Simulated assay, not measured.
Amino acid sequence: MEDRRQHDRRHLGLQIEAYELHSGERLGRLADLSVEGFMLFCERSIETDSVMQFRLVPARPLEGIESVTLGADCLWSRPGPDAQSGWAGFQIIDMASDQASALEILLRHLAQE
Rank of each mutant, 00 (worst) to 15 (best):
6 Q>A: 13
8 D>S: 11
9 R>Q: 09
13 G>Y: 04
15 Q>Y: 05
22 H>I: 11
23 S>R: 08
24 G>N: 07
26 R>T: 11
26 R>G: 11
27 L>F: 07
31 A>G: 07
35 V>S: 06
35 V>D: 08
36 E>M: 07
37 G>P: 11
37 G>T: 05
37 G>Y: 01
38 F>S: 02
39 M>C: 10
42 C>P: 00
43 E>H: 12
46 I>H: 05
48 T>Q: 15
48 T>L: 04
49 D>V: 09
50 S>R: 07
51 V>H: 00
52 M>R: 02
53 Q>V: 00
54 F>L: 11
56 L>M: 06
57 V>L: 07
58 P>R: 01
60 R>P: 05
60 R>S: 10
67 S>P: 09
67 S>V: 03
71 G>E: 11
72 A>K: 01
72 A>I: 01
73 D>R: 14
76 W>P: 00
77 S>L: 08
85 S>W: 03
86 G>V: 00
88 A>Y: 00
89 G>F: 02
89 G>R: 01
91 Q>K: 15
91 Q>I: 10
91 Q>Y: 11
94 D>Q: 13
98 D>R: 00
100 A>K: 00
102 A>R: 04
103 L>I: 12
104 E>M: 09
108 R>K: 13
109 H>E: 04
109 H>F: 05
110 L>A: 00
112 Q>N: 10
112 Q>D: 13
